[in-house]
Every structure is written in C-alpha cells, then in structure tokens.
Design a protein around this nucleic acid. Structure first.
Lengths: 211, 211
DNA sequence: GCTGTGACCAGGGTCAACCCTGCTTTTGTT
DNA sequence: AACAAAAGCAGGGTTGACCCTGGTCACAGC
C-alpha cells in the first residue's frame, strides 16, 4: 500500500516496488484515504510519506498511529524528506516494532530498500542510521527550546511573528504584565543574559526560527 | 537521460518514463557524470533535478547551461522541489527554448507530464503555471529591500544578527544617533508604520531573513 | 552654481520593553 | 497533607529604542 501526495514520486515508487517483488495493492494521496484502504484490505506493509495533505505537517505519523491501532499486523514504512528526530523517537517508543523510518534522499540502493521494506513487514524496526546519529548528538546538545514551558513557547512563537507584547497579550487572552513576565523568563531560559551588544528579543526570535 | 541524486526518485522516474513511451538512455547522480553521458550519446531530452550534489545549490541549472552549450539540440526538463523564481527567469531568458521547469510535487498527471517532456524535446518552453503566477506577482511587488541604501542594508543585516543599536554603531564605526536614524529610515522604507500590534524591529529582521 | 541625495550626527522627547519583587490559584508529585 | 512548578497578574522602576526636527558635508547631475 502506498501513500504519498506527490504523484511523480508515488507512481515512481509503485513501479520500483513492483519491480522488486511487491504487489502494490493501493495508492492514496492523503491519510484518510489511506486509512480507509488499509482497513478494507490490510496489506503486509504500508509505505507512507511523512508529510501529507492537508497540512503537510507530519500527518503521516498520525496516520501511521491510526493504522497501527486499527490493523496492528500492518508494517509501516515512513519516508521523510528531512531528518526529524522527534518523529523517529516517537516511532521507536510509541510503536511496538514493525516500523521503518528512512530519508528519501539517503536511499542509495533499491535492493537494500526493498529488503528494509520486507523487514518492516516482518515486524522489525528499521531506522535510517543518520537519524540514529542525530539522536545521539541531540542528547548531548539539547534543544534550547526544550526548557520552555508550553506557554512560554506559545509566547515566543508569536514574538517570532513580529508581534508586540500588546498583540501577544490580546491573542493569548493574557495581560501585558503576564506576557512581560513570560518574555523575561524566555530570555533567562535561552541563556540570553543582559548584554550591551545584544537585542535579546531578536536573538530569542532567531533561536526560535532555527529550532 | 535522467539526472537526480535521489535514487528512489530517479529510479521511480525512470520507470515512469519507460511506461509512458520514452527510452531512458542513461542515469546520473551528479552534473559532471550527466554532462559526460550527454556528450557521449546525446538524447532527445534530459530530465534534471535542479538540486544536485555536491552542494545541492542549484547546480542543475548550471549543468543544464553546460549541456545547452555542448549539445544545443538536447531538450532540458528541470524538476524542482521548491519554487525558485530566479531560476525560472534564467531558463526563460538565457536559454532559447527547448527547456522546461516543473515542480515535483505539482505534477498530478503522468500523461500530462510525459506530454510536457515531449514538448521540451521538440523545442518548446514549458514552465509550471505556479511559477508564472509568482513571476507576475514578483514584478508587482518588488523586493522591499531594494529600496534601502547600501548603508541601511548593512545596518539591517546586523540587526538581523540580533545586535543592539550600540553594537551596530560600534561595528560600523558610527554613532548611536546615526544608527537610530537609519533604523527609522529602514522601517519607513519597508512600510513598517507604527502599529500597536507590531514589533517593528522583529518585523524588519523577518523581512530581511526572507529576502 | 544650484539642487537633490546619501551619509552622518545632535538635542530633546516619548514609551514599549524589560526587570524586580511580590502575590494568588491551580495542578501535579511525593 | 505538603511541596513545587506553572500560570497569571500587579506596582513600581529603568532604559534602550524610536521619533521629530534640524544640521553639515560630499558627491552627482543638470
């Protein structure tokens, strides 16, 4: 079963899978269609693009979770354009095997790729080595935004859109005093101590944009 | 002829082209290899990923230019993951037809895609409609940074690194009063009038980062 | 010679942003 | 039950950022 909204890629992948011995039982351009198709005719494995319509914001992994819940025996191979460590982590912890997570551009051999898909169909976990390396590195240098509470992150997100404290207060239904308190807390947690050379609000925004 | 470093995509595309009536005479993972292959056995058309190794910074279009110079009769179909207006412009102006520029994710029909590739092989120019729309919009709303003088741009660049006015003054060997004057001028030229909801310095920085 | 523009700068003013200190309430953990 | 953290907010203070107005000098174009 194939799920990817990019026609060129999906149709190309369908041909590759057919050539490497798989039977492609269906194709879907979005998560809802995929879930319906899998329920109707559970395949050995579903190959899913991580970013799917409508929001292209990793619905692929939510769809995968829904498939796992509905049809636990179906393997789930996720393909991503970019390294997204937290999704890999989620796959390794929330799913009980039978999942794969590969980067599209790092697949260099079709035979190995096919073998990985088979492993996943057989219940194994297959994660791109680059992701493992990133996970290890990540544990060493934690994301500075990790220290922020949900509220602080929300405030910073609006700051990063160029909103004033007045606007942030209005949008989050808070008082300006509260927002000011959060802003100061954000600076502290991001290690942005008062310094003559820094415009800390801009620095905080840059940190957010780079995360 | 196919040129794309992403094996999954390239091999999938090879199969699609074969299925839609083309003969795929060769495959290349980088521009140099592609140029060599095209010289050795010029095809009707080369399908090229815009982003190629080693720098993934649009070598595809340079390779296309080199191919055009060496073998003028070869059509050039470029595929891009993202809209990049300046590359489309270059294709339309520097090349004398026989070029195409499509976005990977916006190809929704294989038959139409194949027809587009044939048009390019026949000497036509095929550009994704979305790009045309962007080009038209771009001519209307010129880059806001164009209105800035060299000095204003320099000041904004340092602002965009999160520097305070004090630091900008020190780095550019100016007085703080001068920097303040430039900052106000920058806001005016970027159309950032005083508004209760905006933090204009952050907005200016965001404008700079997106340019 | 005149005009316009860019670069550079000052005095004086306003205020949003930030900081400090202190508080209450809610929620989660032990 | 006790404690800690997060959320939310206030009073009062400081100040960097911004704004207005005015100025000089160098350079380019007419």
């Amino acid at each position: 079963m194939l799920a990817d909204d990019a026609v060129l890629f999906r149709e190309g992948l369908a041909r590759i899978l057919t050539d490497t011995g798989f039977t492609v039982t269906g194709r879907a351009g979005d998560g809802t269609t995929l879930l319906d198709l899998v329920r109707a005719d559970p395949p050995d494995v579903a190959v899913i693009d991580l970013r799917m319509p409508p929001d292209f914001a990793a619905e692929g992994i939510d769809t995968a979770a829904a498939i796992r819940a509905a049809t636990p025996g179906v393997g789930l191979m996720l393909l991503s354009q970019y390294v997204e460590v937290h999704h890999a982590l989620r796959l390794m912890t929330d799913f009980d095997g039978g999942v794969g997570y590969l980067l599209k551009d790092r697949v260099s051999d079709l035979t190995t790729f096919a073998a990985d898909v088979r492993k996943v169909a057989g219940g194994a976990t297959v994660i791109d080595p680059e992701l493992v390396a990133r996970l290890v590195a990540r544990r060493r240098e934690r994301d500075p935004l990790d220290a922020l509470t949900d509220r602080e992150r929300a405030v910073l997100a609006l700051m990063a859109q160029g909103l004033s404290n007045t606007a942030v207060a209005a949008d989050l239904h808070l008082s300006i005093k509260t927002v000011e308190a959060y802003v100061t807390a954000i600076f502290t947690k991001l290690g942005l101590t008062q310094h003559e050379r820094e415009h800390r609000r801009v620095r905080a925004v840059l940190t957010f944009l780079r995360a």
